[in-house]
Design a protein around this nucleic acid. Structure first.
Lengths: 117, 117
DNA sequence: CAGTATCCCGTATGATACTG
DNA sequence: CAGTATCATACGGGATACTG
């Protein structure tokens, strides 16, 4: 990704921010996971998250959560007990991204019924 | 995609708009193509667009433009002449998406230098 | 010039079984 | 419960040659 940015024409350099944003939220479930950590129950355990996401596989959920965590968007809190208990929640950084997601959501809600000729 | 939406828990139904938005702009070059059709030269020919995008292949540019067009985000205007001349520009719908892209861009610019521990 | 045709490849994701 | 390991697959995208 970095290399492509370097190749970008000057006019577009100032827009590389969205390439960065996109790199954080692209993936089939990332944005919906972030959304899943908002609202009435913003702290969610692994299996509960999996249930909420429907068809995601263990593998994908696990990998995705690791990426979100290493990108600083979510927080993973592990309770050292048996059986294990792990809770995921949004970090401040993750929360700062919510308005962006909201805007995408809003645009989609408004325009998903546009008639395309 | 539709099926997954159906599987989504109730709490998330109202957020399916962003899945729709995302489906329109996801892809390695879609957003940057939209951006390329703004500014001082908002009407661009195929090869000029290819030049601006750097490393994109003919195939991918061609496919991507078709998708953007069929999603109503850009307009393809063909001049029946030899050699061929085709101009691409943003539709009103495409323009309405710009604030969303701007916001993603802005967030990325602000947060791309966050220190992640 | 503006594409299309063909072939190839890497990565994201899925299914399932297993483990501490 | 919260994952990991393993194997399999689908799709997006690249390179290049060709065409109306």
């Amino acid at each position: 990704m970095k290399e492509e940015v370097i190749d970008m024409p000057c006019e577009l350099r100032e827009e590389t921010g969205f390439a960065y944003t996109l790199s954080l939220v692209s993936g089939k479930y990332k944005m919906i996971i972030l959304y899943s950590l908002t609202g009435a129950t913003p702290v969610v355990r692994f299996n509960e998250l999996k249930r909420r996401l429907g068809k995601i596989s263990y593998r994908t959920l696990s990998l995705t959560l690791k990426e979100l965590e290493s990108d600083g968007l979510i927080i993973r809190k592990e309770y050292p007990q048996i059986p294990p208990k792990v809770e995921y929640s949004l970090s401040a950084r993750g929360q700062s991204l919510l308005p962006v997601l909201d805007m995408m959501c809003e645009w989609g809600n408004v325009h998903s019924h546009d008639k395309l000729k």
